[in-house]
Design a protein around this nucleic acid. Sequence first.
DNA 1: TTTATCAATAGATAATATCTATAACGATGG
DNA 2: CCATCGTTATAGATATTATCTATTGATAAA
Lengths: 298, 298
Amino acid sequence: MIENYQLRYFLAIVETGSFTKAAKRVFVTQPTLSAGIKKLETNLGSKLFDRTSKRVFLTESGTRFVPHAKSILYQLNLAEADIKSTGRTQLLRLGLLMTISADIVRNILTTFTRDVSGLVIELFEGTEQEIQNRLGEGKIDIALTILRPTLKLDMTPLYKEGYGIALADHHPLAKKENIHPAEFAGEPTIVRSRCEILSETSRFFTDHNVRPRLVFNTAQDERALSMVAAGVGSTTMPDHYKMDGVKRIKMIGYDFEREIGLVKTSYQLSEERSNLIDQFISFTKSHLPEITYARNNQ
Amino acid sequence: MIENYQLRYFLAIVETGSFTKAAKRVFVTQPTLSAGIKKLETNLGSKLFDRTSKRVFLTESGTRFVPHAKSILYQLNLAEADIKSTGRTQLLRLGLLMTISADIVRNILTTFTRDVSGLVIELFEGTEQEIQNRLGEGKIDIALTILRPTLKLDMTPLYKEGYGIALADHHPLAKKENIHPAEFAGEPTIVRSRCEILSETSRFFTDHNVRPRLVFNTAQDERALSMVAAGVGSTTMPDHYKMDGVKRIKMIGYDFEREIGLVKTSYQLSEERSNLIDQFISFTKSHLPEITYARNNQ
DNA sequence: TTTATCAATAGATAATATCTATAACGATGG
DNA sequence: CCATCGTTATAGATATTATCTATTGATAAA
């Protein structure tokens, strides 16, 4: 088999045009280099160089061998650089459902990254479907998302929560804890375009002959929440979303719920990566109290 | 530096999950394989495997090293296969102007390929412009084409020839050696769409108030010649085209000429390839008598 | 506790990369 | 024509390393 030192000798000759100069370049004596090239040529069954008393020229085979040699040595250097550069860095690729407030995981991650040395987290934010796709493709290792019985993946339940109304705390309806759907008619409404129950919500209001008035459409839940606080309009959101100036109340009949948990990819991971994920799951469960305020809202 | 035998040991372990099985697979003893992996890990500064008493698992670094190892060994096998498969095959990439009959080069190539061992010829047929492009891009080594003073390439003149009329030998005008353009009016005409003087020919007839009647349009000169022989129509062609049943005559004023020769690419080639091309040029010149019938037609 | 299995280590050996010394060859200048 | 110079190839010796056998150490299973 071709040896890598032979490739280095070969390319040194190509670059210098001389066995003697090439030998100096790769720090061996000229007979050593000559013998190395002889072994390479014997192995390949072809002359790679035409020797003259003045210069060395590539043969047809030698010409075709040059890109191969360069590619192999490039790949070797790349491999060494890759493994050497990161040392013991550990990578966790985390998916996060975009209708879960970033605050939920901020506390967990702040502490987890402090406790685990050399940790790098790649975060992916997406819809429920986007996250399921990425888990299926092995592009993320684990995700904080809605648990569904149809998922054939390893799931760790964390908490359940309902959906409710968010309105400015100076809003007339803010004095109540529960309102009838009819009280919402004509209400300026903010739509969260990426909500996973958007179509169910639309059907709910239609069924109750309630036509809210659309005043803002956004994909960013935090921006929706801010506009609620500003009195631009009201919206429906999962219970865990809170902000100063915002009152969270319930609407009779609007009984949607969801269960949030961690879902692992089905891809087989290295032992080290599996251990890290198990470590993350345990850590998240044990730090659950940090987020149970979102679970029991009544 | 990484040694290739270490890559083979590494991938054998990945595939089998065991040092002992891997050693058997690559035909060394288990301590040999163990030592090889130790050297690789020392060189890279990272553990590649976590050892247990039951199975061996990849570490994070090991996981990332797998594609590198596979790629390198793949490139090595590719290089060996490429050089070993062709042995001492010599490649000549020849361009051929499509308005030069294949017969012209058939005799040259038949003899040349017999005389040169291990020769493979890649033939490219195209218009004058296409051939110039390919020469400029180094995609062909040499071409048999029209010589132009504007070409800044190495040219070897071979012969000069004119253009004339080709018509069926039972055609009334076939009795003459020279005809006036006016005698061609209303004549059924075959157009060779890739002729390098197509526009000049068109202007010539227009200037002489001659309007031939188009009956066939083709890119294939040999097919045009066959249809002439069949009496479908007449055409204009370089003088060297001949066929049984076809009479070649001249038209007064239709004085176009071209010089044919070999043109080398400007790309720098290997010594072996350069030698082959010089050999081809010498051979073609020395066999020129085989095609001079096309040069002196009167 | 004993046994079996697997990987790591120690020391010996075989194979090979590399060294020094020199031969062989071709180009150049007198 | 001959001497000289520069370059590559060969021969034999040496240094280095891949591989061997023998054995130890660790762990799981009976």
